[in-house]
C-alpha cells in the first residue's frame, strides 16, 4: 500500500502517468482484435473484456474504448453528440482525449480521420479511410423481444428474426405504418440483424455501402460490432410498406438546407418553434463559417 504522501506526489504528475489514450497497450490490442473479428463477421456482436473508464457507463464508454484503441499520434479526432460538436458530453470526451493523448482535434467532418458519435451520422459524406465510432447503449436489437442473452445468441445463430419482423407488422396493424423512428433495425450483409445504435432512421441509408469503416462499441454491455466499408445494409420493411426516412416541410432556419436532419427548437412560451440542422458543422459550412 502506498502512503498518502506518495499519492500526493504522484498526483502532481498524474497526467503523464497514463498511457497514450489512457488504456494500456495490452487492453488496446485486445479491443483491436475484437474489432478485427467484428469486421470479419459484419454485424455480429463480439464480446470483449470491457474496462471501467473514468466516465460513467452509458455516457459513451464503449465508443471511448474503441477510439482509445484505434487512435494514433497522427490522427485527427472529431466528437459529436446529437450531431453537434459543442454539446457538453462531446466537449467532455474531446477534452479527455486531448488530455490523455494530445492529438489534433477538429470540428470539420472532412478533416477528421476518426469521428466518435452519439445518435447521428454526419450529413457530409464520409470517405474511404475515415472511421466512424458509434456509442451504443443496448447492442442487442432483439433485447426488447427477448431479454435473455442466452436466447438472443441462439436467435442470431439460427437467423431466427421472424419476431423482429412481427414487431413491424404489429406497428402497421396499430398505426398504419412502421412506428420505429430511431435505432431502426437493419440486416447487415444479408446475415446479421443489427441495432445501428439510436441514430434516427434518417441516417440508416448512410450505413449502406459506406466508404468509411463503421465501428460500434457498447461499454456497459461489453460488445463490439462493425460494418466494413462498402457493405450491404438493409433496413427491415415490407414490400408494400417500404422503409422511408423523416422529412420536414421546413428548411433549416440558419442555412436553408432541405435535406438534413433538423432539430426543433422552442423559441418562446407560446409554442413558437423553429428548425435548425442537428449537424452543426454541416450547417456552419453551408453558412460559410469555419471553426478550425
Amino acid at each position: 500500500m502506498r502512503s498518502v504522501n506518495e499519492h500526493i506526489n504522484q498526483s502532481a504528475q498524474s497526467e503523464q502517468n497514463y498511457n497514450f489514450a489512457y488504456l494500456d497497450e495490452q487492453t488496446k490490442r485486445m479491443i483491436r482484435r475484437a474489432i478485427l473479428k467484428g469486421i470479419a463477421i459484419p454485424g455480429y456482436q463480439v464480446a470483449f473484456q470491457g474496462r471501467e473508464m473514468p466516465m460513467p457507463y452509458g455516457w459513451g464508454t464503449g465508443g471511448i474504448m474503441l477510439s482509445a484503441s484505434i487512435l494514433g499520434p497522427k490522427d485527427c479526432f472529431k466528437v459529436i453528440d446529437q450531431g453537434a460538436d459543442d454539446t457538453t458530453n462531446a466537449v467532455s470526451i474531446r477534452q479527455f482525449f486531448e488530455k490523455v493523448c494530445d492529438i489534433e482535434v477538429t470540428q470539420k467532418t472532412a478533416n477528421a480521420s476518426v469521428i466518435q458519435t452519439r445518435h447521428r451520422i454526419p450529413e457530409h459524406s464520409l470517405v474511404e479511410g475515415q472511421i466512424l465510432v458509434f456509442q451504443v447503449p443496448i447492442p442487442e436489437p432483439l433485447r426488447f423481444i427477448e431479454p435473455r442473452e442466452t436466447r438472443t445468441k441462439k436467435m442470431h445463430a439460427y437467423s431466427d428474426y421472424g419476431s423482429m419482423q412481427v414487431k413491424l407488422y404489429e406497428d402497421i396493424v396499430q398505426y398504419g405504418h412502421i412506428a420505429t423512428s430511431y435505432a431502426y433495425p437493419v440486416i447487415v450483409h444479408g446475415r446479421y440483424l443489427m441495432d445501428p445504435s439510436p441514430i434516427p432512421k434518417f441516417d440508416n441509408p448512410k450505413l449502406h455501402m459506406s466508404p468509411a469503416l463503421l465501428v460500434f462499441g457498447a461499454g456497459r454491455e461489453k460488445r463490439i460490432y462493425c460494418i466494413p466499408p462498402y457493405t450491404d445494409v438493409k433496413s427491415l420493411d415490407f414490400e408494400d410498406h417500404p422503409f422511408s426516412i423523416q422529412q420536414w416541410d421546413q428548411a433549416c432556419a440558419q442555412c436553408g438546407s432541405h435535406d438534413s436532419f433538423l432539430d426543433e427548437v422552442l423559441i418562446d412560451d407560446q409554442g413558437g418553434r423553429m428548425f435548425v440542422c442537428s449537424d452543426t458543422d454541416f450547417c456552419q459550412q453551408r453558412q460559410g463559417n469555419s471553426n478550425d
Binding site: 446529437q82 447503449p137 432539430d263
Partner: peptide, 15 residues
C-alpha cells in the same frame, strides 16, 4: 451510469 445517462441530450431521438 446507464440510469444517469438519461440526463444526456436525446433531442435527435426525441425529434
Amino acid at each position: 451510469g446507464f440510469v444517469s445517462h438519461l440526463k444526456l441530450p436525446h433531442y435527435v431521438d426525441f425529434q
